[in-house]
């Protein structure tokens, strides 16, 4: 069985690999609901303006205003997603709210052609009701694409909203006694650094007992290689990490 994950990797011609998380039916349905709500509100506004214009223009104006209102609602229904996706590089307001973006199969931004095709095919995806065809297509496609995406050569990804994290601090700070016995230089493997940083960031959520239990698995290896020793396994990792990251400032 393949690994169960929704992450997909794209490799550029320069051999740079980008990873994106595919967006499946659940977040896309919520984004669609947000867009549907906006479309309904805009539609109501168009109709209200047309109604007021019709009343003020008399009998002839009512007919013209009605036609304009119908045209406006039609344009809204068929053009809303296309225009937004083409102008906003694959996003509609609903997708912005959920952090989703339509991209080409190779990870590039969508243009008018792709946006138009995938949204024209929306009518087929919605058949026979409640997007059942689209849902079934997404469920069987490895890249969670609906019919419109398959035809237009696009897919929907969830954009990471990550932020640069501060270097975590150790608590309590290094005492003078600990500093005296710390080796002048400590080298940690990148994976060790990442794990200890993760432990430092999540120590509060994991609780002291669990942190010590996890640290006890890694500490002997770090201790043997670096010569750093603390009162507990967790303290050993903290001291090794702070010396490796901050050097003599630790």
């Amino acid at each position: 069985m393949d690994p169960v994950d929704t992450v997909v990797a794209f490799e550029t011609p320069e051999r740079v690999v980008f990873r994106h998380r595919l967006a499946g039916p659940a977040p896309r349905a919520v984004a669609w609901l947000v867009d549907a709500l906006i479309q309904v509100l805009l539609g109501l506004m168009v109709m209200a303006v047309a109604l007021l214009a019709g009343i003020s223009l008399g009998e002839l104006g009512t007919g013209v205003a009605g036609a304009i209102a119908l045209l406006g609602v039609f344009m809204l229904q068929w053009g809303y997603a296309t225009v937004f996706e083409a102008w906003w590089r694959g996003q509609t307001p609903g997708k912005v709210a959920l952090g989703l973006r339509v991209v080409r199969r190779d990870g590039g931004p969508v243009g008018w052609r792709e946006a138009l095709l995938r949204n024209l095919l929306r009518a087929a995806d919605a058949l026979p009701s409640l997007y059942v065809v689209g849902l079934v297509t997404m469920a069987v496609d490895p890249r969670l694409r609906r019919l419109g995406d398959l035809v237009a050569g696009t897919m929907v990804v969830a954009e990471g909203r990550g932020h640069l994290e501060d270097t975590p601090a150790i608590d309590p700070p290094v005492t003078p006694a600990e500093r005296d016995v710390l080796p002048a230089r400590v080298r940690l493997l990148p994976e060790e650094r990442a794990v200890i940083a993760g432990l430092l960031r999540r120590a509060h959520a994991l609780g002291p007992l669990r942190v010590e239990e996890l640290a006890a698995r890694l500490a002997p290896q770090v201790e043997a290689r670096t010569g750093v020793t603390g009162q507990t396994a967790w303290r050993t990792l903290q001291l090794a990490w702070v010396r490796a990251v901050r050097g003599a400032d630790a």
Binding site: V4, T6, R21, G24, P25, L144
Partner: peptide, 8 residues
């Protein structure tokens, strides 16, 4: 995302 993972 968990719901998506269930479908996968």
């Amino acid at each position: 995302t968990s719901l998506d993972a269930a479908i996968v």
